[in-house]
Design a protein around this nucleic acid. Structure first.
Lengths: 197, 197
DNA sequence: GTTATATTACGTTACGTATCGTAACGTTAA
DNA sequence: TTAACGTTACGATACGTAACGTAATATAAC
């Protein structure tokens, strides 16, 4: 039987210790939540993770990249809401949870990664294709269930609907001109439902 | 006649050369539009403006602060749209102009300042109280004229209306998942009008 | 009025520090 | 033998500040 020519490219040499990667990401995550993006330096990560600096560079090209990886791995863990509820209630619950996350310390991390994504294209792609897409996908799915359920009318443009919901949420998170309450979220949902956006 | 005890606190010593300040801001603005926030370093500004580094520190505490000042002075110059038009048309025109600015190189500067505002409270306040407030004030005024004009129904919450318009605009600017077209702006306006947000 | 003197704006130079990214070399695990 | 790590070291960049000299303007003394 020939070698598996696909997923396993015949690993040779000493394998990477998975604890190394985990330690780096954990340290980066902790630094990010406390001091924001500016405190996530390679040196600080190395010290906190008890790993040498060159090792970190063997995994990622720079500090913001580590921060982004840590952020995405941390937020990606959250499973989709198992909802025995009605889809519209599930939609509300899902967005309330996001609002709570934005209000919690996690919110500052989200804002920090939005900021980081502005200076490097690679980070922007990663953030958009993972964090942003995840949220949009989850909400889109629930919106479609609502439509199928006839609990709301079919929107003209579901992508616009998503922008109408997420846009103001991020806007308040980033500008801080007004709080992100459940009531605020409910009004956003109402706006989308009424306008058939 | 006694001294004016108010606005002029009797300036003594050598007055600041206004060209110095102007040169610094101009240089910072140019650097910002090209290389983004990371290329706005005190050293680069000093060289481009032909000013010494210590002088820059006499005006501002750090590089992002200079960038913010340059940005706010540049964008603040735009006068309110003189509109002999109907208020609703003026509203569309105003937001189309903003969309154009977001699409142009200026948009990258806006995004950069949003990012900068995430790490320093002072910058956040300045950005929110000047740039964000300016845009909201202008749009709020036009919305109120529309209501007075009876060209649209009175929104339940005009601040929410502003969030529904600006939120998605900034969202697309920062995430880059979809283009910022005039059609997009028109749909945002429609959403606000229909929902009485 | 003219001349000191204080005060401030600026340039020049220099310093110590932080963080960067990389290179060289030895050690350890497969 | 190969690659993952640690250790150490290096040059580079930018930081923020300090010290000093000079230029420009006010106020006060004569």
């Amino acid at each position: 039987m020939p070698r598996q020519a696909s997923s396993s490219p015949a690993p040779r040499g000493r394998p990477r210790d998975p604890r190394t990667r985990a330690a780096i990401l954990t340290a980066a995550r902790a630094l990010l939540e406390r001091g924001g993006l500016t405190s996530v330096t390679i040196e600080a990560i190395a010290q906190k993770a008890e790993v040498s600096r060159p090792t970190i560079y063997r995994y990622w090209p720079n500090a913001p990249a580590v921060a982004m990886a840590a952020f995405l791995e941390a937020t990606g863990a959250s499973d989709a809401v198992k909802s025995p509820r009605a889809p519209l209630a599930a939609l509300r619950a899902q967005l309330h949870a996001l609002a709570d996350a934005f209000t919690a310390p996690t919110g500052r991390s989200v804002a920090a990664m939005v900021a980081a994504a502005q200076s490097e294209t690679e980070l922007a792609k990663a953030f958009r294709n993972e964090f942003i897409a995840r949220n949009r996908d989850a909400t889109r799915a629930l919106l479609e269930r609502c439509v199928a359920d006839k609990s709301i009318a079919a929107p003209d443009d579901i992508e616009l609907s998503l922008d109408l919901i997420f846009g103001p949420l991020f806007y308040r998170l980033l500008m801080g001109h007004a709080p992100i309450t459940h009531g605020f979220v409910d009004r956003l949902i109402d706006a989308v439902i009424l306008t058939r956006g």
